[in-house]
């Protein structure tokens, strides 16, 4: 009886306020989808950075025997094989270093050829044009400053490139993307809350006759307010379902595409977690907004 009655009231309310209901559904859907995308970027970035931190190395390039363009190499001749071996030992002895491998000129050439598509460039570069290098794997990729500094000031080293600096630029971009998604999401959520408040207020105004009689015959506050709160909640829930669909689409279209490039996939587990979270947030906001509005407009 009770449930029947409340649901019929909710249905009447949603139908009478159809345009407002649609506005709520759309705002909630977009707001929650953006929130979800922000969270998904967050989890993607987390996974990517741990993946890349395992991959990144510090490249220590050595001065070439002749015509090395780096100014540091003008005063220092190329290292002899003994000096190279000594330097390798020295690097290996450093606290931060996990492992070190030597890449000689022919290996460097092979790596370059394998990684380049430009045939003109390929034919122009010869073995020996590329410097020899040490590739160093750090124990903690975030803790590189001292190692890099020491190596840069070592004689016979032309240049030190920390791959992490390159990766960090990408992460910086992703981070900005994530924050803008979250800021837009927050704005949308705020707008959604106001819209829901307005919808509930209109609904309460439309049905002031009913609620007046309900008050008069002694219906409890919960009984009077529940249909309105349910109205907001159901609109929020429908918006949440649309948001879920949008999130699944974005996972398939955007994240799987990007993931292929970045060699890390966003798992369905993470997506379902994000969807659950956004649904809960959406519904909670709807309940809260309706409740606060009702306290102002449906005083008992």
């Amino acid at each position: 009886m009770r449930a029947n009655f409340i649901f019929s009231e909710v249905w009447i309310g949603l139908r009478r306020n159809l345009t407002m209901t649609i506005a709520v559904v759309v705002t909630v859907a977009v707001g929650m989808a953006l929130l979800g995308i922000g969270l998904m970027i967050n989890s993607q970035v987390g996974r990517l950075s741990s993946y890349w931190n395992d991959q990144v190395e510090v490249n220590v390039y050595l001065c070439k025997a002749k015509d090395d363009p780096f100014p540091k190499c003008r005063d220092h001749p190329a290292l002899s094989d003994e000096q190279k071996a000594a330097l390798k030992g020295e690097i290996q002895g450093m606290q931060q270093v996990e492992s070190v491998t030597f890449v000689d000129a022919s290996q460097a050439y092979k790596i370059f050829i394998a990684g380049t598509a430009d045939t003109v460039l390929k034919s122009a570069v010869k073995v020996g044009d590329l410097p020899e290098s040490f590739q160093i794997k750090l124990r903690d990729p975030n803790n590189y400053a001292t190692t890099v500094q020491t190596l840069e000031s070592t004689a016979g080293v032309s240049n030190v490139i920390n791959q992490k600096d390159l990766v960090d630029k990408t992460f910086g971009f992703l981070g900005k993307l994530q924050w803008s998604a979250l800021v837009i999401a927050l704005t949308m959520v705020f707008a959604a809350a106001l819209l829901i408040g307005n919808t509930v207020r209109l609904s309460a105004y439309n049905r002031r006759r009913e609620t007046g009689i309900m008050r008069l015959v002694g219906a409890s506050n919960l009984y009077i307010q529940l249909p309105f709160i349910m109205e907001g909640t159901i609109a929020g829930l429908i918006g949440g379902v649309f948001a879920a669909v949008l999130l699944i689409c974005s996972k398939i279209i955007i994240f799987d595409g990007l993931g292929g490039l970045m060699s890390v996939q966003l798992s369905w587990n993470a997506v379902s977690g994000v969807i659950t979270l956004t649904m809960i947030v959406g519904v909670l906001i709807c309940i809260l907004a309706s409740f606060i509005t009702l306290r102002r407009y449906l005083r008992v």
Binding site: R215, L216, V217, G218, A219, S220, N221, V300
Partner: peptide, 13 residues
């Protein structure tokens, strides 16, 4: 306040 509805159930208008 939350008992007012119960009072009103005993009053017809």
């Amino acid at each position: 306040n939350f008992k007012v509805p119960h009072l009103r159930r005993r009053i017809g208008c």
